[in-house]
Design a protein around this nucleic acid. Structure first.
Lengths: 155, 155
DNA sequence: GGCAGATACTTTAGGCTTGAGCTATTCAGG
DNA sequence: CCTGAATAGCTCAAGCCTAAAGTATCTGCC
């Protein structure tokens, strides 16, 4: 019996929905984190950051990374520092704004990310692949609505 | 455009589902964390731990808390230490096993938690209440399937 | 031009979280 | 009994994350 299962029957709908969503998310997240550590000796935040850079070959500014990853700027500074030290990422001066950097994957970073991304997708498919296509699509749509509503209500 | 929206169109279904789930979960989590800090100067992990204790008035052992909260034992030690110091929680010797504690809410903890739980549910309703009853129920059911499948596949 | 406010980034203190390694206790077989 | 394995809990180092405060630069407005 875990947190979500234990919710007493008189808990209300929205609360139970949130607890269940959190449980699902944590289950998957733990699995992925653990595999990233085992197989690649890295972490989910590092992977997420590199994944953004891979989608933006022209590079991203620190504050763009911060917004995309939904974490604070100080946090991005720390993670980028590490990846720079490991040679996976580089800070390039931004020509138009001397306050800013353009952060990019190095060639080594691009290569390392490609391998991790392949494995990562396999793990996710392994975990979630058992859902029927119909369920998966329904879930996608409902989560889209949830996301829109949440964004609206937290603004 | 956030992480999930940015996923390129050729990303596969399971991966996109996972990213969307993560985004939803993080949006709600950030909101709740921020409000817990503002209004009660506390954190989500502390709230979660107290919430488990509130559901188990007879007390819980450290390893039971660890399992219920899906975090490691060392983590539970730290959070319980703090709550004990603040007088919200107490460690009672377990009569049957001298290695173990029974962790319980104190009267002050119970009172403090009741107030926080009321506010917490309001915040969640405020955030998610916009979903129709039908959508909420469908989502509950699909997430239940997802949870079952994930548990099965990560075992 | 110059100044006020906004913006880009870093730093710091403090809390969360993990995995690995430690002690103490319990339990199951011989 | 007693010994080895399992279990309950703690400690530690390292990394993630936040909010707040600090520096440097840019931008708009007079």
């Amino acid at each position: 019996m875990d947190r979500e299962t234990r919710a007493t029957v008189d808990d209300h709908r929205a609360l139970r929905l949130w607890l269940r969503l959190l449980t699902c998310s944590q289950l998957i997240e733990r699995h992925v984190r653990s595999r990233l550590r085992e197989r690649f000796d890295t972490t989910l935040p590092r992977f997420d950051l590199m994944s953004q850079l891979e989608r933006h070959p022209q590079g991203l500014k620190m504050n763009e990374l911060s917004r995309l990853l939904m974490v604070t700027g100080g946090n991005v500074t720390g993670i980028v520092d590490q990846l720079v030290k490991e040679g996976l990422v580089e800070r390039v001066d931004d020509a138009a704004d001397r306050r800013a950097w353009r952060v990019k994957l190095t060639r080594a970073g691009d290569k390392a990310f490609a391998e991790m991304a392949r494995a990562h997708e396999e793990w996710v498919i392994e975990l979630l692949g058992g859902l029927t296509r119909k369920d998966a699509e329904a879930l996608m749509q409902l989560l889209a609505r949830l996301k829109a509503i949440t964004l609206e209500n937290s603004a």
